[in-house]
């Protein structure tokens, strides 16, 4: 249902590169395809980064972490537990404390 013909895809790609974005081939065919610009935010080095990297990048970009106001240890713990319990992030129990320490060191407050 959301598949595109190669021709439309080529056309869309061409427009994406060459023209202002409003000029998609959509009006004729009803097919719209967009290419998302690259993700730029990265986890910054620090103890626990690899553990956070394994657990925190599957569902969303890490700008979700850095845009937050500095959060307390309690708030970061609640956030990690929300990812695990509510959103079903497969975070091993042993990793929780490591990730929380990392997050507090990255964007924490007293």
């Amino acid at each position: 249902m959301r598949k595109l013909s190669p021709a439309t895809m080529a056309l869309a790609a061409l427009f994406t590169l060459a023209a202002p974005p409003m000029l998609f081939a959509e009006e004729k065919s009803g097919e719209v395809k967009i290419d998302l610009p690259p993700e730029t935010a990265q986890l910054k080095p620090g103890p626990g980064m690899d553990t956070a990297s394994r657990n925190c990048k599957t569902c969303h970009s890490v700008d979700y972490i850095y845009m937050q106001p500095p959060l307390t240890r309690e708030q970061w713990t609640a956030t990690v537990m929300k990812m695990k319990k509510v959103f079903g992030a497969p975070i091993p129990d042993n990793d929780v404390a490591i990730i929380v320490n990392y997050l507090v060191s990255q964007n924490g407050k007293e």
């Binding site: 974005p21 409003m22 998302l36 610009p37 690259p38 700008d63």
Partner: peptide, 16 residues
């Protein structure tokens, strides 16, 4: 960042 069908806007998060 400029997204397809969009002018330059303020990106809060990239994915979603």
């Amino acid at each position: 960042v400029t997204y397809p069908q969009k002018r330059e806007l303020i990106r809060m998060t990239a994915r979603p």
